[in-house]
Protein backbone atom coordinates (compact mmCIF):
# COMPACT_ATOMS: atom_id res chain seq x y z
CA UNK A 1 0.00 0.00 0.00
CA UNK A 2 1.15 3.53 -0.81
CA UNK A 3 3.07 5.10 2.08
CA UNK A 4 1.89 8.55 1.00
CA UNK A 5 -1.74 7.53 1.45
CA UNK A 6 -1.01 6.15 4.92
CA UNK A 7 0.75 9.35 6.00
CA UNK A 8 -1.94 11.56 4.52
CA UNK A 9 -4.66 9.60 6.34
CA UNK A 10 -2.72 9.96 9.60
CA UNK A 11 -2.14 13.70 9.28
CA UNK A 12 -5.78 14.45 8.42
CA UNK A 13 -6.99 12.41 11.38
CA UNK A 14 -4.27 13.80 13.65
CA UNK A 15 -5.30 17.39 13.06
CA UNK A 16 -8.82 16.57 14.23
CA UNK A 17 -7.43 14.74 17.26
CA UNK A 18 -5.35 17.81 18.13
CA UNK A 19 -8.39 20.05 17.94
CA UNK A 20 -10.50 17.79 20.15
CA UNK A 21 -7.73 17.38 22.75
CA UNK A 22 -6.41 20.94 23.04
CA UNK A 23 -9.25 22.13 25.28
CA UNK A 24 -8.91 19.09 27.52
CA UNK A 25 -5.17 19.67 27.79
CA UNK A 26 -5.63 23.33 28.67
CA UNK A 27 -8.14 22.63 31.44
CA UNK A 28 -6.03 19.84 32.89
CA UNK A 29 -2.84 21.85 32.69
CA UNK A 30 -4.17 25.16 34.06
CA UNK A 31 -6.90 24.06 36.47
CA UNK A 32 -5.58 20.60 37.34
CA UNK A 33 -9.09 19.38 36.57
CA UNK A 34 -9.57 16.13 34.62
CA UNK A 35 -12.65 17.23 32.76
CA UNK A 36 -14.86 14.17 32.32
CA UNK A 37 -17.38 16.39 30.52
CA UNK A 38 -15.06 16.88 27.56
CA UNK A 39 -16.43 14.00 25.43
CA UNK A 40 -20.01 15.19 25.97
CA UNK A 41 -19.03 18.76 25.01
CA UNK A 42 -17.68 17.41 21.71
CA UNK A 43 -20.87 15.50 21.01
CA UNK A 44 -23.02 18.49 21.99
CA UNK A 45 -21.13 20.61 19.46
CA UNK A 46 -21.67 17.93 16.82
CA UNK A 47 -25.39 17.66 17.58
CA UNK A 48 -25.94 21.43 17.52
CA UNK A 49 -24.22 21.62 14.15
CA UNK A 50 -26.15 18.68 12.75
CA UNK A 51 -29.58 19.86 13.87
CA UNK A 52 -28.99 23.42 12.69
CA UNK A 53 -28.03 22.02 9.29
CA UNK A 54 -30.70 19.32 9.17
CA UNK A 55 -33.66 21.34 10.48
CA UNK A 56 -32.88 24.89 9.36
CA UNK A 57 -30.33 24.39 6.58
CA UNK A 58 -27.61 26.35 8.38
CA UNK A 59 -24.22 25.63 6.84
CA UNK A 60 -21.87 23.91 9.34
CA UNK A 61 -19.20 26.56 8.82
CA UNK A 62 -21.63 29.27 9.88
CA UNK A 63 -22.44 27.22 12.96
CA UNK A 64 -18.80 27.08 14.11
CA UNK A 65 -18.82 30.50 15.85
CA UNK A 66 -22.32 29.90 17.22
CA UNK A 67 -21.39 26.52 18.66
CA UNK A 68 -18.17 27.99 20.04
CA UNK A 69 -20.02 30.83 21.77
CA UNK A 70 -22.71 28.56 23.22
CA UNK A 71 -20.22 26.04 24.52
CA UNK A 72 -18.02 28.79 25.96
CA UNK A 73 -21.00 30.14 27.91
CA UNK A 74 -21.91 26.65 29.13
CA UNK A 75 -18.33 25.95 30.20
CA UNK A 76 -17.95 29.33 31.90
CA UNK A 77 -21.23 28.79 33.78
CA UNK A 78 -20.33 25.27 34.97
CA UNK A 79 -16.90 26.36 36.18
CA UNK A 80 -18.12 29.55 37.86
CA UNK A 81 -21.10 27.95 39.58
CA UNK A 82 -19.96 24.42 40.37
CA UNK A 83 -16.32 23.57 39.77
CA UNK A 84 -14.78 26.73 41.27
CA UNK A 85 -16.28 25.68 44.61
CA UNK A 86 -13.99 22.67 44.74
CA UNK A 87 -11.23 23.58 42.31
CA UNK A 88 -8.53 23.59 44.99
CA UNK A 89 -9.63 20.22 46.38
CA UNK A 90 -7.72 17.03 45.45
CA UNK A 91 -8.05 16.07 41.79
CA UNK A 92 -10.36 13.16 42.62
CA UNK A 93 -13.00 15.62 43.90
CA UNK A 94 -13.13 17.64 40.70
CA UNK A 95 -12.98 14.46 38.65
CA UNK A 96 -16.02 13.11 40.50
CA UNK A 97 -17.87 16.41 40.10
CA UNK A 98 -17.26 16.59 36.35
CA UNK A 99 -18.17 12.90 36.08
CA UNK A 100 -21.54 13.66 37.71
CA UNK A 101 -22.11 16.68 35.49
CA UNK A 102 -21.19 14.53 32.49
CA UNK A 103 -23.82 11.94 33.40
CA UNK A 104 -26.46 14.69 33.45
CA UNK A 105 -25.38 16.17 30.12
CA UNK A 106 -24.91 12.75 28.51
CA UNK A 107 -28.37 11.52 29.47
CA UNK A 108 -29.94 14.87 28.60
CA UNK A 109 -28.56 14.53 25.06
CA UNK A 110 -29.57 10.87 24.80
CA UNK A 111 -33.13 11.65 25.89
CA UNK A 112 -33.63 14.76 23.75
CA UNK A 113 -31.45 14.03 20.70
CA UNK A 114 -31.43 10.18 20.97
CA UNK A 115 -28.27 8.12 20.50
CA UNK A 116 -28.84 7.78 16.74
CA UNK A 117 -25.62 8.51 14.79
CA UNK A 118 -25.89 11.91 13.03
CA UNK A 119 -23.64 13.22 10.32
CA UNK A 120 -23.60 16.36 8.24
CA UNK A 121 -23.38 15.31 4.59
CA UNK A 122 -21.86 17.95 2.35
CA UNK A 123 -20.76 15.58 -0.46
CA UNK A 124 -17.73 17.64 -1.44
CA UNK A 125 -16.04 14.76 -3.25
CA UNK A 126 -12.34 13.94 -3.03
CA UNK A 127 -9.15 14.99 -4.75
CA UNK A 128 -6.53 12.71 -6.26
CA UNK A 129 -3.10 14.09 -5.39
CA UNK A 130 -0.49 11.98 -7.22
CA UNK A 131 -2.41 8.81 -6.43
CA UNK A 132 -3.31 9.86 -2.89
CA UNK A 133 -7.07 10.14 -2.38
CA UNK A 134 -8.08 12.91 0.00
CA UNK A 135 -11.78 13.46 0.75
CA UNK A 136 -12.51 17.19 0.66
CA UNK A 137 -14.68 17.04 3.78
CA UNK A 138 -11.76 15.66 5.75
CA UNK A 139 -9.39 18.23 4.25
CA UNK A 140 -11.81 20.98 5.23
CA UNK A 141 -12.11 19.54 8.74
CA UNK A 142 -8.32 19.34 9.03
CA UNK A 143 -7.78 22.90 7.80
CA UNK A 144 -10.35 24.33 10.20
CA UNK A 145 -9.02 22.24 13.09
CA UNK A 146 -5.51 23.59 12.47
CA UNK A 147 -6.88 27.13 12.11
CA UNK A 148 -8.76 26.93 15.41
CA UNK A 149 -5.78 25.43 17.20
CA UNK A 150 -3.57 28.16 15.74
CA UNK A 151 -5.99 30.87 16.85
CA UNK A 152 -5.93 29.50 20.37
CA UNK A 153 -2.13 29.46 20.30
CA UNK A 154 -2.01 33.13 19.22
CA UNK A 155 -4.61 34.06 21.85
CA UNK A 156 -2.62 32.37 24.58
CA UNK A 157 0.61 34.11 23.59
CA UNK A 158 -0.49 37.59 22.69
CA UNK A 159 -3.75 38.52 24.42
CA UNK A 160 -4.00 39.73 28.01
CA UNK A 161 -6.42 36.90 28.82
CA UNK A 162 -3.97 34.39 27.36
CA UNK A 163 -1.09 35.80 29.38
CA UNK A 164 -3.27 35.72 32.50
CA UNK A 165 -4.11 32.05 31.86
CA UNK A 166 -0.42 31.25 31.46
CA UNK A 167 0.37 33.20 34.63
CA UNK A 168 -2.27 31.27 36.62
CA UNK A 169 -0.97 28.01 35.20
CA UNK A 170 2.58 28.89 36.35
CA UNK A 171 1.71 30.09 39.86
CA UNK A 172 -1.84 30.92 40.86
CA UNK A 173 -0.82 32.53 44.15
CA UNK A 174 1.63 34.86 42.47
CA UNK A 175 -0.94 35.59 39.76
CA UNK A 176 -3.50 36.51 42.42
CA UNK A 177 -0.96 38.84 44.05
CA UNK A 178 -0.50 40.53 40.67
CA UNK A 179 -4.22 41.36 40.62
CA UNK A 180 -5.43 38.54 38.37
CA UNK A 181 -8.87 37.27 39.36
CA UNK A 182 -7.98 33.62 39.50
CA UNK A 183 -11.52 32.23 39.69
CA UNK A 184 -12.51 34.29 36.67
CA UNK A 185 -9.50 33.01 34.74
CA UNK A 186 -10.45 29.47 35.74
CA UNK A 187 -13.96 30.00 34.36
CA UNK A 188 -12.62 31.53 31.15
CA UNK A 189 -10.16 28.65 30.73
CA UNK A 190 -12.89 26.07 31.24
CA UNK A 191 -15.06 28.02 28.80
CA UNK A 192 -12.27 27.97 26.22
CA UNK A 193 -11.88 24.21 26.79
CA UNK A 194 -15.61 23.73 26.13
CA UNK A 195 -15.43 26.05 23.10
CA UNK A 196 -12.61 24.01 21.55
CA UNK A 197 -14.44 20.76 22.32
CA UNK A 198 -17.68 22.04 20.78
CA UNK A 199 -16.04 23.31 17.62
CA UNK A 200 -14.08 20.05 17.32
CA UNK A 201 -17.42 18.24 17.57
CA UNK A 202 -18.83 20.45 14.82
CA UNK A 203 -15.87 19.53 12.59
CA UNK A 204 -16.13 15.85 13.49
CA UNK A 205 -19.79 15.88 12.43
CA UNK A 206 -18.51 16.61 8.90
CA UNK A 207 -16.49 13.41 8.73
CA UNK A 208 -17.87 11.03 11.31
CA UNK A 209 -21.39 10.27 12.58
CA UNK A 210 -21.67 11.66 16.10
CA UNK A 211 -23.66 9.87 18.78
CA UNK A 212 -23.64 9.96 22.56
CA UNK A 213 -22.10 6.49 22.45
CA UNK A 214 -18.83 8.16 21.41
CA UNK A 215 -18.35 10.43 24.42
CA UNK A 216 -16.12 7.89 26.19
CA UNK A 217 -14.10 7.23 23.05
CA UNK A 218 -13.46 10.96 22.49
CA UNK A 219 -12.46 11.38 26.11
CA UNK A 220 -10.05 8.45 25.78
CA UNK A 221 -8.49 9.98 22.66
CA UNK A 222 -8.04 13.30 24.49
CA UNK A 223 -6.23 11.49 27.33
CA UNK A 224 -3.84 9.73 24.96
CA UNK A 225 -3.13 12.89 22.96
CA UNK A 226 -2.36 14.83 26.16
CA UNK A 227 0.01 12.18 27.48
CA UNK A 228 1.81 11.81 24.14
CA UNK A 229 2.09 15.53 23.43
CA UNK A 230 2.29 16.97 26.91
CA UNK A 231 -0.18 18.76 29.13
CA UNK A 232 -1.25 22.36 29.29
CA UNK A 233 0.07 23.74 26.01
CA UNK A 234 -1.30 24.17 22.51
CA UNK A 235 1.84 22.79 20.79
CA UNK A 236 1.65 19.74 23.06
CA UNK A 237 -1.89 18.93 21.89
CA UNK A 238 -0.97 19.56 18.27
CA UNK A 239 2.08 17.29 18.39
CA UNK A 240 0.18 14.66 20.40
CA UNK A 241 -2.79 14.70 18.00
CA UNK A 242 -0.68 14.42 14.88
CA UNK A 243 1.46 11.71 16.48
CA UNK A 244 -1.61 9.67 17.48
CA UNK A 245 -3.16 10.04 14.02
CA UNK A 246 0.04 8.83 12.36
CA UNK A 247 0.56 6.01 14.86
CA UNK A 248 -2.98 4.70 14.29
CA UNK A 249 -2.72 5.00 10.54
CA UNK A 250 0.68 3.33 10.20
CA UNK A 251 0.02 0.59 12.75
CA UNK A 252 -3.33 -0.13 11.07
CA UNK A 253 -1.40 -1.18 7.98
CA UNK A 254 1.59 -2.79 9.68
CA UNK A 255 -0.21 -4.72 12.47
CA UNK A 256 -3.79 -4.70 11.11
CA UNK A 257 -6.72 -2.43 12.02
CA UNK A 258 -7.52 -4.60 15.06
CA UNK A 259 -4.31 -3.48 16.79
CA UNK A 260 -4.03 0.15 15.69
CA UNK A 261 -5.59 1.57 18.87
CA UNK A 262 -3.54 -0.75 21.06
CA UNK A 263 -0.33 0.60 19.58
CA UNK A 264 -1.44 4.14 20.48
CA UNK A 265 -1.95 3.09 24.11
CA UNK A 266 1.39 1.27 24.19
CA UNK A 267 3.15 4.44 23.03
CA UNK A 268 1.30 6.35 25.74
CA UNK A 269 2.46 3.88 28.41
CA UNK A 270 6.05 4.01 27.21
CA UNK A 271 6.01 7.81 27.35
CA UNK A 272 4.48 7.77 30.83
CA UNK A 273 7.41 5.67 32.03
CA UNK A 274 10.28 7.31 30.17
CA UNK A 275 9.06 10.84 29.43
CA UNK A 276 6.09 11.78 31.62
CA UNK A 277 6.10 15.36 30.32
CA UNK A 278 5.15 14.09 26.86
CA UNK A 279 6.96 14.92 23.63
CA UNK A 280 6.84 18.71 24.02
CA UNK A 281 5.30 19.14 27.48
CA UNK A 282 6.47 21.48 30.19
CA UNK A 283 8.10 20.00 33.28
CA UNK A 284 5.80 20.22 36.26
CA UNK A 285 2.61 19.38 34.35
CA UNK A 286 3.14 15.65 33.96
Amino acid sequence: MDLGQVLANGIVLGALYACLAVGFSLVWGVLNVINMLHGSFIILGGYLTFFAWHLFGVHPLLMLPVVGALLFCLGYFLQAVFINKVVTAPVLTTLTLTFGLDMILYNFMTVYFSATPRQVTLDLGSIDLFGIYLPNERLLGMALALLLTGLLFVTMRSSSIGRAIVAVRMDRFAAALMGIKVNRIYAITFGIGALMAGTAGALFALVYPVTTNLTGIFLGKAFVVCVIGGLGSVPGALVGGLALGLIESISGVVFGPQHSLTVGFVVMLVLLVFRPTGLVGVKGYE
Binding site: M1, D2, Q5, V6, N9, L13, Y208, I217, G220, K221, G245, E248, S249, I250, G252, V253, G256, P257, Q258, H259, S260, L261, T262
Partner: peptide, 19 residues
Protein backbone atom coordinates in the same frame (compact mmCIF):
# COMPACT_ATOMS: atom_id res chain seq x y z
CA UNK B 1 -9.30 -8.33 9.36
CA UNK B 2 -11.14 -7.02 12.38
CA UNK B 3 -11.04 -3.38 13.44
CA UNK B 4 -10.91 -2.27 17.06
CA UNK B 5 -13.92 -0.77 18.84
CA UNK B 6 -13.37 2.99 18.83
CA UNK B 7 -11.65 3.11 15.43
CA UNK B 8 -12.48 6.54 13.97
CA UNK B 9 -10.76 6.15 10.62
CA UNK B 10 -10.83 3.10 8.38
CA UNK B 11 -8.59 4.39 5.61
CA UNK B 12 -5.81 1.90 6.43
CA UNK B 13 -8.08 -1.15 6.27
CA UNK B 14 -10.00 0.10 3.26
CA UNK B 15 -6.85 0.97 1.30
CA UNK B 16 -5.71 -2.65 1.79
CA UNK B 17 -9.12 -3.93 0.67
CA UNK B 18 -9.03 -1.74 -2.45
CA UNK B 19 -5.55 -3.03 -3.27
Amino acid sequence: QLYAVGTMDHAAGISSIVA
